[in-house]
Design a protein around this nucleic acid. Sequence first.
RNA 1: GGACGGUUAGCUCAGCGGUAGAGCACUGCUUUCACACGGCAGGGGUCGCAGGUUCAAUCCCUGCACCGUCCACCA
Length: 948
Amino acid sequence: MDKTYSPAQIEQHWYAQWELQGGFAPRSDAGAKAFCIMIPPPNVTGTLHMGHAFQDTIMDALTRYHRMRGEAALWQPGTDHAGIATQMVVERQLNAEGRRRTDLTREEFLERVWQWKAQSGGMIAHQLRRLGASVDWSRDRFTMDEGMTRAVTEAFVRLHEQQLIYRGKRLVNWDPVLLTALSDLEVLSEEESGSLWYLRYPLSDGTGALVVATTRPETMLGDTAVAVHPDDERYRHLVGATLILPLSGRRIPIIADGYVDPSFGSGCLKITPAHDFNDYAVAQRHQLPLINIFTPDARLNEAAPPQLRGLDRFEARARILVELEARGFIERTEAHKLMVPRGDRSGAVIEPYLTDQWYVRVGELAAPAIAAVESGRIRFVPANWDKTYFQWMRNIQDWCISRQLWWGHRIPAWYDEAGHIYVARDAAAAAAQARAQRGRDVPLRQDEDVLDTWFSSALWPFSTLGWPAETADLRRFYPGSVLVTGFDIIFFWVARMIMMGLKFMADVPFRDVYVHGLIRDAEGQKMSKSKGNVIDPLDIVDGIGLEALIAKRTAGLMQPHLAPAIEAATRKQFPQGIGAHGTDALRFTFASLATHGRDIRFDLQRVGGNRNFCNKLWNAARFVMLSVEQQAPGPQELLFAEAGEVELTVADRWIRSRLGAAIRVVEGAFADYRFDFAAAALYEFTWHEYCDWYLELAKPVLQGAGAATPQQRGTLQTLLAVLEALLRVLHPLMPFITEEIWQRVAPRLPGPAPAAPAPVPVAVPASIMLAPWPSAADFASDPAAERDMHWLMQVVLGVRQIRGEMDLSPARKLPLLLQNASAADLALAQRHQALLMRLAGVETPCPLTDGARAPPSASALVGELTLLVPMAGLIDPVAELARLEKRMRKTGEEISRAQAKLGNDKFVGAAPAAVVAQERERLAEFERTRAGLERQLAQVRALGADPP
RNA sequence: GGACGGUUAGCUCAGCGGUAGAGCACUGCUUUCACACGGCAGGGGUCGCAGGUUCAAUCCCUGCACCGUCCACCA
């Protein structure tokens, strides 16, 4: 093995191997429990960002974990056609060529999109492979592939048959730039500064005027009433009177409606039913006419006075204000903060607009979806996300699913010339329907619109498994085990999958919903292209130079003027670019950051630390393999041949026991989706137990070449067995390095069969990913070994502390005296003498017999036992005095605290007996320590080292 | 206007009734035959503020402050 771990050399090799072996497909034996995760399909024409990489790491870890546990694990891959987003990208490309979408026919444009998909669609697959994602590529799906189209059509037709889909003319959120309707969710409202204009509307009888306050004066052209509150004394007598609408001269009534808030503005509300959702509702109640004043791109239409027609809504506002001002209709103007709705893709101000659209009647679908979470059939992790879910689901509005786009699933509805609608699975069926209803053949044309992308996404959990056919996969893998997703799409996607799953599969689509936080940059900023702070996860894996990184971040910006600022920030944050860290380090970092209910500030230094961790693991394995080859250069016979001739040291037993504990922690962490706990436990065990202690403890045992003793065999076996099992526990989080090492280690171990006289190496799985998850029971808890090791570690730490604080060279062997040693201490010291000498760097420990005078020494306490390192020629008494005094101070503080507690009758009376006993124990321990320290202090002071 | 989350060591974060932890950064010693992407030792925190409950509060309750997110029809 090389001295340094180089991820680049091993990662791509192993992924190709896994794929070749077909290791990603779920095992087919009928008895295996199914485990299934559906990938949230990313936009096919996009690339994966850090959030995806994080999410994919979690899904892959879960999949690998369950696969190793013998389950039929399926991680379903796929991509999404992402209607608006993709269409916009292709339109931008056309614009760059000086063309527009409308210069092409619909077919030509779609051809163009498919080309772009073919060209860019491989990027995500490539990234997933580099991240080690063990998705079953043979099942790769696209939300506009043939099967998905069939599923979408089927779902639409069935919902329509049950009157759960309908077509209706009503106000929708209209994007006047993209020229399409949007669902409520695709509209983001933000507070912006505007004005509140107070307009005077004269009464038709000439007796005065009413003042209305509005933030959108241009919509007055569509006013069909002014409303006041029915109890408003100021205006009650005017209800039923008529106003003359300025500029237009149209007469509109004054009506009373409880919606009006008398305390806002003047208490009079202009009603513009065709351009405001609330006004629309008021108009419905009062049978007011609707007057549309805008064209689809939000210019004034023929309903406006001639001089204003054709003006954009914002130009129109300015012009109308000038005219109103000139004619004295403006009473006053106030600055005003208001919520402005904008399209989430275009950023354009959304216009409530009267159009024909298709809707899903959601109320009926929502009820069982709410119940599924209430009853616990679906569980959110962390649990408090169910509140968010309920809040939305209980106030859900009908879902507008038609989009005036070209890229997407065409709506399976046909119209005849009279406008009758035929919803059918295909054109022929629609024609047959029309014939049956009309009594003759009638020419039909299909609806031009496409479906909201999320309509197909909502079917993802079962359409990928073959629905509407009743497939074996559906029976086996539906419902899925867990959905891993960000909170930002709980409404867009999670809720809708639950509704559709319950509707079409009569069961929930998944049991758990693991909701993770957002990946932010080191400053806590959201990562986005326009902020120029995005990092391609592969750039952390492979590294990237500064100039290349800048080029990547500033290319193709929507606002090119931001480039210099982005470049400066990038130079500041990554003066050397980004180094190569490898996939395993990145994945381990994601896992260790995956805490519950919190966004994640991504810190590149963590990845650096975890790359070092990989290197540590690599070198530990290197040490093990070197040791094994030295003792048993050939086959494994030397290590495992003669049964019974193996002796385990206390260290061997200890590390096995500790591994068992670590396995249990990791299992619990996976069950609770606490990947941070899993990572921490593995890091701690690998580095601080296996490497820091166990490998050092193994060295003295292995010293001296030649024929292996039973003890050496035991240690070699333990080195190998613990490493091999550790690799398997690490594998779900760090697939590549564990595979690379495991391929060298596993063949050295005997299989599960009992060692026969001439043991045959048992066939091991071709890959660690197919090896079984290690059983904690194979590494049973060994309290006796843990006790002995605890003692040994305390002694070693005591000596090291003296050495460290006295600045003694690590190379220097120190004499060690044992004072006040119990019989047990002496036995332990005897039994572990070699280990003790090696790890503490001391000469043979020498017990002080009772009454023997101790030389002036630096000291450390292990229970009753006092460790003494004679000072002569080594230690500065002044320094030792300072050290002892510092310890004395700390001990004194602890003693006072414990005494205060125990002196409190209420504590002794009310606290549980165990807590009181523990406190007494603590106090006794501290007092022993104090006594020991006092002895030592007296002796050092007696040297005359006490400063004046 | 509702709802949710956060505030713990210089930084990023765990912990959440009874000795305050990790990683990184920092200081000293150390280039001994797994690893300097290393080893050993060390320094560093009145756990946002104020009340309350409790024998005991970083942890539970109430209020406040600041930061963040989501939802909502006040023109």
